[in-house]
Simulated scan of single mutants.
Amino acid sequence: MSAPVATGVIPELFRGLFDDAAVFPPGNLPIAEAVPAHRVHRAAWYAEAVGPFLCGAGRLGELAAVVTGGATPPASAAVAAATARGAEEAGATPLRVGLVLPGGSAELAPALAAAAPFELAGVELATRDAAEAVAELDRLLPPHVPAAVELPRELLRGDGLDAVLDVLVDSPYRAKFRTGGLVAEAFPDEDELAAFLTGCALRGLPYKCTAGLHNAVRHTDPETGFEHHGFLNVLLAAQETDRAAAAAVLAERDGEVLAKAARALTDRQVTVIRNSFTAFGTCSIAEPLGDLAALGLLSSPDPLPQEDR
């Protein structure tokens, strides 16, 4: 049985896929604007697509000040209008925060303490030593809180990839892979990303991605010339265990081809894909939703959000 694209709701393939990384580059939205915008997203009809609010360890104090009223967010027209439509209701719920710790395990204990005012949705820990990171997460992380471990891409090439994935597969934690950045070298090619995806798939290891995946379909950015992976490409490649097959899916640039493949997925395939590719951080919630609507994979009962970066 095929999994149809639902009307007026978020299809299972995209639920919880878009972690809100509005305060990270290239969006760099001020926290005082990003928090009310996130609350708008969480009160909107597409809320099921939106994951937690991502915040770096060094900005948790600023975030707490905004959430508790210590900073007044600018009354932009978009935020004001959305608030009138029900953002106040979303503001009554605790802010779900994902901690992003680029400084490694040394940041874990103080960040957990600083995150006390929030509902902790997860931890993303960058490290150069997967085993050490796993040990520290085991020691300090509350048992109900999920985590993802990110290693530099240069350590995931050749035999290094297998070694890291083998460490993580024996832990309760996801892998995290960086799919873009502010320079061309930050974007892995299809083969490198395919190696990571299939390595995880063969082990049954879940993962998240971050950076460069705002759009659904692989493309060349007309301003920077950077080669961006599409999140729909990654979703479809997540079910592959053959590296060449995964690379071919990642290389596809025809949105209609990808949309047709997404519509043909069975319920079981959707489950396999989302058990593997759990989420990605995006500094825009509007862009991915708009792309899905344009491809006919999302039918919106109300207007989509305006650009939020």
Rank of each mutant, 00 (worst) to 15 (best):
A43K: 12
A90M: 05
A49G: 08
P36N: 08
T278W: 11
A131F: 11
N215S: 12
A44N: 06
A186H: 13
L295Y: 05
Q269F: 06
H219L: 02
F226M: 00
A32K: 12
R268Y: 12
A211S: 15
C200P: 00
E132R: 15
R96S: 11
A6G: 07
E107R: 06
L235I: 13
T68G: 09
F18I: 10
F226W: 01
P110R: 13
A84I: 05
G98E: 11
L235H: 13
A65W: 06
T93M: 08
I273N: 02
G8R: 11
A195L: 08
E62K: 14
A22E: 10
Q239I: 10
G296T: 03
T271F: 04
G255N: 04
F118M: 10
L17E: 05
G61A: 09
H144K: 06
G51F: 08
A71Q: 14
L140K: 12
E240W: 03
A78D: 14
T179W: 08
T68Q: 13
T282E: 03
D170L: 13
A279N: 10
A6S: 14
A147M: 09
A34R: 10
S76C: 12
E154V: 11
D254E: 13
E48G: 04
V123G: 02
A84Y: 03
G98W: 03
A216V: 09
A77K: 12
A246F: 02
F196N: 05
F231W: 03
C55H: 03
P26T: 03
P146S: 14
P142M: 01
L54E: 07
V50I: 15
F53K: 10
A57H: 15
F226Y: 11
F18D: 09
L165I: 06
L168C: 05
E223F: 07
R253H: 04
D162M: 05
V35C: 01
P288N: 09
E240Q: 15
K208M: 02
C55Y: 05
L99W: 07
P303V: 12
A244H: 11
